[in-house]
């Protein structure tokens, strides 16, 4: 019996020794795909952006940077055009900035408010569990479905003339506001949960009311976490294209919006319009727009991640 057991025991020592490092290396390579993609992405877009006018050799960094900044300046100053040489993103960039500001003004207070209500006021129980599940599911709804909601609710108002906003800036703002709401609510709740309950108890013991505890102590303590979520949500709003196509961001528009009820267009929508042009010359224009968008969003996200990591270390 013991002989049979000894026979069936195979230590596979050599294989076991080799498998570990090989697997580790494979996993490392897999992790690097992300970094590689990011690098290739930026490189390809830079190359495409610079491919239009006659360009300097790649090692001539100064001249290339000058060309690049000239190109970006031109793209920011020019309006839409069917001529790739003078096409730009002036109206779209202004539209995106309007969207950013108004979505922040509407989405941030509502999102933080909902998070505070769920975490600090609503007692644990069935209602809270239902709302919580609902928010988790809202976070997973595809962005284009929010676009459909905005189209029927804000743009058309189910056909009620007086309430319909039409394809106006405000309709886009409300749609994007709803889109980023779950992100802000969830991160606000997470941030509030990290505030130690001893802080609340100490303030309550000194006679502070519930609202005084929240506004004076809990919210300031949770602020870094809330800011992270807010910035991530806003950067998502700026980069979204599909819902804006649904709620009528204009394909071609030569005048920047002056108020919330004006027609508008946004940077990603204009990029989409240039990118689907069959004319090859538009590729450089689209790449330049992507460059503006990616630099804007990556810096927003980097700030958010930095805030969060700093906060984590401090805890």
């Amino acid at each position: 019996m013991s002989d049979a057991a000894a026979d069936s025991f195979r230590p596979h020592r050599r294989m076991r020794r080799w498998l570990g490092p090989v697997f580790g290396a494979a996993c490392f390579v897999a992790t690097l795909t992300g970094v590689v993609v990011l690098t290739v992405l930026m490189g390809a877009i830079l190359a495409a952006a610079l491919s239009g006018p006659p360009h300097s050799p790649w090692h001539d960094l100064g001249a290339n940077l000058r060309e690049l900044s000239a190109l970006l300046g031109r793209l920011l100053a020019n309006r839409q055009s069917s001529d790739p040489a003078v096409a730009g993103y002036h109206v779209g960039v202004i539209g995106s900035l309007w969207l950013l500001g108004l979505v922040a003004a509407i989405g941030i207070p509502v999102g933080i408010g909902a998070g505070v209500f769920l975490e600090e006021y609503l007692p644990a129980g069935r209602i809270r569990r239902i709302i919580q599940t609902n928010i988790a599911n809202l976070a997973g709804v595809p962005s284009i479905v929010y676009g459909i909601l905005g189209l029927a609710l804000f743009v058309r108002a189910f056909g009620v003339r007086g309430l319909a906003l039409g394809p106006s800036l405000l309709a886009g703002v409300l749609t994007l506001g709803l889109l980023i709401l779950p992100t802000i609510v969830i991160t606000t709740q997470e941030a509030l949960r990290t505030v130690p309950s001893s802080l609340r108890q100490a303030a309550l013991a000194l006679g502070a009311t519930r609202w005084q505890v929240i506004s004076g102590h809990v919210l300031p303590a949770a602020l870094p976490g809330i800011m992270t979520g807010t910035i991530l949500g806003l950067s998502r709003a700026v980069g979204e294209t599909a819902p804006l196509l649904m709620v009528g961001a204009a394909g071609s528009l030569l005048r920047a919006p002056r108020g919330p009820l004006d027609r508008y267009t946004a940077l990603p929508v204009e990029i989409y319009n240039y990118a689907k042009e069959p004319n090859r010359d538009f590729q450089a224009v689209a790449a330049g727009g992507i460059l503006i968008l990616v630099v804007l969003l990556l810096s927003m996200n980097a700030v958010a991640i930095l805030i969060r990591n700093r906060f984590r270390r401090a805890r």
């Binding site: 992300g34 993609v37 990011l38 992405l41 877009i45 991530l232 950067s235 998502r236 700026v238 980069g239 979204e240 294209t241 599909a242 990603p268 990029i271 989409y272 990118a275 992507i290 968008l293 990616v294 969003l297 990556l298 927003m300 996200n301 980097a302 991640i305």
Partner: peptide, 9 residues
């Protein structure tokens, strides 16, 4: 950071 790149890109 990569998760923050918009889908149109």
């Amino acid at each position: 950071l990569l998760a923050g790149v918009p889908t149109i890109v």
